[in-house]
Nucleic acid binder design. Structure first.
Length: 805
RNA sequence: GCCUGGAUGGCGGAAUAGGUAGACGCAAGGGACUUAAAAUCCCUUAUCCGUAAGGGUGUGCGGGUUCAAAUCCCGCUCCAGGUACCA
């Protein structure tokens, strides 16, 4: 009987499920290992071949670590709040909970068909009140720490999605989901003070084993810059002043004008009568612009003079104050001192409006462009002759002494806009009293569940669907006072901010997790998922984790010790897989036709985990052939263990290859090099296929080596070989270094760096011995003819290179 | 523009304390088995010249260091991802 994955795979999946093979408990006698997948949003489309790539990788590591004696936490869950179920509800009236349940069931079925070694007793679902009860509890901890506040300001409003979005969710002025335009709209919204953690979020990146690109992205997003704040007085209005932030305080003598953001509160106070109309018109024009207009179309600088002047604190000169939208209210102080000679943006603005450009770096030419490099200062009073860095120090000291400024650090990171105008999300556990006071709910009363409704449509004005349900919104406090619930809900990120903690203690109904479980399992040792979460999810959860750490709820500063981004699996034509391109591969079809083991192995064999690579059905068939060959090493056509499996020892060559294979596969697994580990297994199988007799013990070892990759096939062969229980906890094979030694080695001989012949030499042979052998080679003799040997380079047991003249 | 990766046969990819480039797989070609096909097994396969023996050329491009460079250094080109008036 040939290898029939359709028969053995369901059998072993059932076996694992019934015996709870992968159930884990805290075991202080064993070292722990926590392997985590980025849990999926269970969409209606079902699983994509991209999902199993990361899941297979963590599963292989989990299975390997178990065999290495680790107590492995590996679990799966559902990030199930989110837009699609809600959009579907709007269209059909089906409650999102119903849609979610159907999708979750489908995802679970698909994932289970792939044979992952999850502890299914730990399955979680962010939309389960038993789960989001604790999401709400964490929010109360954040609220209690004063890190949540309501803010009345322009926010990113997406009319198409009818919700606000965080800065991180707006990409190029469009929504991250769907790519719809985003505009600014003033609204009162909950904000989380992630900026209070900017420094820690930046600092603690250092100790993490993460891809450089992700660390860089987070660094850029946090965007720390060091400079100074400088105070400017408004001429003729001594009670009015403003503060600018600059990274180049050394250029203060070169400032020729100042610019305020159009939204700056001072603008209305300083706009002169004759400029008033122009200022108001400009402000209105800016307010109407979308984010996209402000960035993309802003190649040309625009702005308006306010009619007022500021006093340069160091020269006493008059500087005209302008407003321009190249100065953003959201960054720094919303005001700048313009130094057109040494800042390209200021230079362009000065050129556009005929403002003076002053050079303060000796020898610099500022007629064609701003000079932004280092140099010696000139025209700068007491800073003359200094280089940029010392000049910064000196001017900051001067400003501080004069009370006209101070050293300052600024971050690009903004506070996290945390509310959404949605139905399908965690309600805020807060009550708003009529006097404006906000009361947190008593944690004992959680979860706060959303009301049942059939109208899921948010109003176009930005009110959430919950606002239509007065019987839910309006409550009476114990003292008889009326209060209102918040009609907004939390963003989808809330649930995924802490799910890795819940996995450590998923059934706990007394706490979000027990200290004991958290202390034993955390941090996550290996976290694998897509690169699209580089800033969003990974920054948000690091922030929550740090808050929880400071409150003593968790024991580690960082949640995810090692992070790996799996690459994308492209369609067979090399393009991104999508329905419209018609190149989508459905894992269900692959499992049906070739089996889960083939799919798992193929996805790992395609190339390095981190790289994007195109799907190839014939490549998958090649892997399937390999598994068939593997099967036939053990079983004959009648499905019997081959009689050629013997107790007799294998030849030394075969034995050496086996030990090499154990070594290579082990090392490759530690380094997540699954593709080369599989190659080595293929080499071993190819070699054994040619053998008449095979040593049974060795073949048992080989089954164990294959088992993390193709667990169903391995379990089946293991039991056929006499195993009475799962191989999941069998010790991982060891290799014997003494078996790897060869007494002879073949080395290349080069003449003038060109490969001319190979020599088989005794291991550790001396240069003289090797030269002697080389002289016996006909090919080398031919090379030596008529030439003189000038130099011999011999790297023991590696290479011989002869230099001739 | 800036930041981070990357570029190796017809294809996916191996090989980096510098030391036989192309492991393994796919595709292609040839052969065995078969009435035939599928499946399986064996062989060939970087490229050019040559019947062969053998030789030349080759890791995006141009230089350099070295006995020896896919690997190190300098200067480019192109591709992917991220980011974008952040003062």
């Amino acid at each position: 009987m040939p290898y029939q994955p359709g028969k053995i795979e369901p059998k072993w999946q059932q076996h694992w499920e019934q015996n709870k093979t992968f159930k884990v408990e805290i075991d202080p006698n064993k070292p722990k290992y926590y392997a985590l997948d980025m849990f999926p949003y269970p969409s209606g489309q079902g699983l994509h071949v991209g999902h199993p790539e990361g899941y297979t990788a963590t599963d292989i590591v989990s299975r390997y670590k178990r065999m290495k004696g680790f107590n492995v936490l590996h679990a799966m869950g559902w990030d199930a709040f989110g837009l699609p179920a809600e959009q579907y509800a709007i269209q059909t009236g089906t409650h999102p909970a119903v849609t979610t349940q159907v999708n979750v069931d489908n995802f679970r079925r698909q994932i289970k068909a792939l044979g992952f070694s999850y502890d299914w007793d730990r399955e979680i679902n962010t939309t389960d009140p038993k789960y989001y009860r604790w999401t709400q509890w964490i929010f109360l901890q954040i609220f209690g720490a004063g890190l949540a506040y309501e803010h009345d300001a322009p926010v990113n409003w997406c009319p198409e999605l009818r919700t606000v979005l965080s800065n991180e969710e707006v990409i190029d002025g469009k929504s991250e989901r769907g790519g719809y335009p985003v505009v600014r709209k003033p609204m009162r919204q909950w904000m989380l003070k992630i900026t209070a953690y900017a420094e820690k979020l930046l600092e603690d990146l250092e100790g993490l084993d993460w891809p450089v690109s992700v660390k860089e992205m987070q660094k850029h997003w946090i965007g720390r810059s060091i400079g100074a704040e400088v105070h400017f007085e408004v001429w003729g209005k001594p009670d009015l002043s403003f503060v600018v932030f600059t990274t180049r305080p050394d250029t203060l003598f070169g400032a020729t004008y100042a610019v305020l953001a159009p939204e700056h509160p001072l603008v209305e106070q300083i706009a002169s009568e004759d400029q008033w109309q122009a200022v108001v018109a400009y402000k209105e024009a800016c307010a109407a612009k979308s984010d996209l207009d402000r960035t993309d179309l802003a190649k040309k600088k625009t702005g308006v003079f306010t009619g007022s002047y500021a006093k340069n604190p160091v020269t006493g000169e008059n500087l005209p104050i302008w407003i321009a939208d190249y100065v953003l209210m959201g960054y720094g102080t919303g005001a700048i001192m313009a130094v057109p000679g040494h800042d390209q943006r200021d230079w362009e603005f000065a050129k556009a409006f005929g403002l003076p450009i002053k050079n303060i770096i000796a020898g610099a030419d500022v007629t064609a462009a701003a000079h932004t490099e280092d140099g010696e200062l000139c025209n700068s009073g007491f800073l003359n002759g200094l280089k940029v860095e010392p000049a910064k120090e000196k001017i900051i000291a001067w400003l501080e002494a004069q009370g006209k400024g101070k050293r300052s650090i600024n971050y690009k990171l903004r506070d996290w806009l945390f509310s959404r105008q949605r139905y399908w999300g965690e309600p805020f556990p807060l009550l708003h009293k009529e006097d404006g006071q906000v009361l947190p709910m008593d944690p004992k009363d959680l979860p706060l569940t959303p009301p049942l409704t059939e109208n899921f449509l948010p109003s176009p004005t930005g009110e959430s669907p919950l606002a239509n349900l007065p019987e839910w919104i309006n409550v009476t406090l114990p003292d008889g006072q009326p209060a209102k619930r918040s009609s907004n809900t939390m963003p989808q990120w809330a649930g995924s901010c802490w799910y890795y903690l819940r996995f450590t203690d998923p059934q706990n109904d007394q706490a979000a997790w027990s200290k004991e479980a958290e202390k034993y399992w955390m941090p996550v040792d290996l976290y694998i998922g897509g690169a699209e979460h580089a800033v969003l999810h990974l920054l948000y959860s690091r922030f929550w984790h740090k808050v929880l750490y400071e409150q003593g709820h968790v024991s580690t500063k960082e949640p995810f010790q090692k992070l790996v981004n799996q690459g994308m699996i492209l369609g067979e034509n090399g393009e991104k897989m999508s329905k419209s391109r018609g190149n989508v591969i459905n894992p269900d079809d692959i499992v049906k036709e070739y089996g889960a083991d083939s799919l798992r192995l193929y996805e790992m064999f395609m190339g390095p985990l981190e790289k994007s690579k195109p799907w190839s059905t014939s490549g998958l068939e090649g892997i399937n052939r390999f598994l068939n060959r593997f099967w036939r090493l053990y079983l004959d056509d009648q499905d019997q263990i081959l009689t050629t499996l013997t107790e007799a020892p294998a030849s030394t060559e075969i034995e050496r290859l086996y030990h090499e294979t154990v070594k290579k596969v082990t090392e490759d697994l530690e380094a997540l090099r699954f593709n080369t580990a599989i190659s080595q297994l293929m080499i071993m199988v190819n070699e054994l296929t040619g053998q008449q007799e095979r040593n049974q013990a060795m073949l048992q070892g080989l089954v164990l080596l294959l088992s993390p990759f193709a667990p169903h096939l391995a379990e089946e062969l293991w039991s056929r070989l006499g195993g009475t229980r799962t191989l999941a906890y069998e010790p991982w094979p060891d290799f014997d270094p003494s078996k790897l030694k060869q007494d002879q080695v073949t080395i290349p001989v080069q003449v003038l760096g060109k490969h001319r012949d190979n020599l088989t030499i005794p291991l550790g042979a001396s240069e003289a011995q090797v030269m002697e052998l080389a002289r016996q080679s006909e090919k080398i003799q031919k090379q030596l003819e008529g030439r003189t040997l000038v130099k011999v380079i011999y790297v023991p047991d590696r290479i011989l290179n002869l230099i001739l003249k």
